[in-house]
Design a protein around this nucleic acid. Structure first.
Length: 231
DNA sequence: GCGACAG
DNA sequence: ATCTTGTCGC
């Protein structure tokens, strides 16, 4: 049984060459599928997020597996790896995916869908971290970001569920979605094997009253909690 | 050349 | 992302 998270290193290799990394992104972006699979609804959904320790020297990725129907957590895992590169806008996935893959590989089941903290195709070259993860694993993914990297959108109504398309170079690359009344909108974009409409639908379906959908909200909590200092 | 710039 | 206490609002 080969795990989908056991990917070829060349698909996310970082050697300090920015132009080369960008070329790889463009190549992989051509493999992104923005269509829904026909078949049953996802049974298990995972949420992933990354945090840092030791002043950034250690990258800590957290993955949480949940029952898609109830949003009850089934498993929570964490992976720590030495940080290999700095944050470079547009190249986030090269910095964070190694740890994310290590965390996902520890889950007891392969998820039917993965929600990632970051962008999907709402990226300069169409390959944000969610799209990159989807293409190299072959699994359906959705990007859920808190800020725009590229693109613009019109004003959005104040109620949960209201939205506006995120446009870039005349193309829709994502959706600015009000996930909670009166709160700044989330930026939702397909990562792989999901349409724009379904990406938004799934994020709303995973909502439990908070700004972030449950999968990434729980992963966020695991990835960035400074160890509780009990007395 | 001057900003903008996921996490 | 991370460094950090209190404070405003539901």
């Amino acid at each position: 049984m080969t795990s989908p998270f056991d990917v070829s290193p060349e698909l996310l290799a970082w050697d300090g060459d920015v132009p080369r990394a960008r070329r790889l992104q463009s190549e992989l972006a051509a493999r992104v599928r923005l269509h829904d699979d026909d078949g049953p609804e996802p049974h298990r959904v995972a949420g992933v997020d990354v945090g840092f320790e030791e002043g950034g020297a250690i990258t800590r990725a957290a993955a949480v597996l949940l029952d898609a129907a109830t949003m009850q957590p089934l498993a929570e895992v964490v992976a720590r790896l030495p940080t290999r590169m700095p944050y470079i806008p547009g190249l986030l996935s090269f910095r964070e995916l190694p740890a994310v893959l290590a965390a996902l590989a520890q889950l007891p089941h392969v998820p039917d869908l993965i929600l990632v903290d970051g962008h999907g195709v709402a990226h300069p070259r169409g390959l944000g971290i969610a799209a990159h993860l989807g293409v190299i694993t072959g699994l359906p993914t959705i990007g859920v970001a808190k800020k725009i990297l590229v693109g613009t959108h019109d004003a959005i109504g104040p109620s949960r569920g209201e939205r506006a398309p995120l446009m870039h170079r005349g193309r829709m690359i994502g959706t600015a979605l009000r996930s909670k009344d009166g709160i700044l909108p989330l930026i939702v974009s397909p990562g792989h094997r999901v349409s724009h409409a379904t990406a938004v639908e799934r994020v709303l379906a995973c909502g439990r009253g908070y700004k972030l959908p449950e999968p990434t909200r729980l992963a966020d909590r695991l990835a960035s909690r400074r160890d509780r200092r009990p007395l």
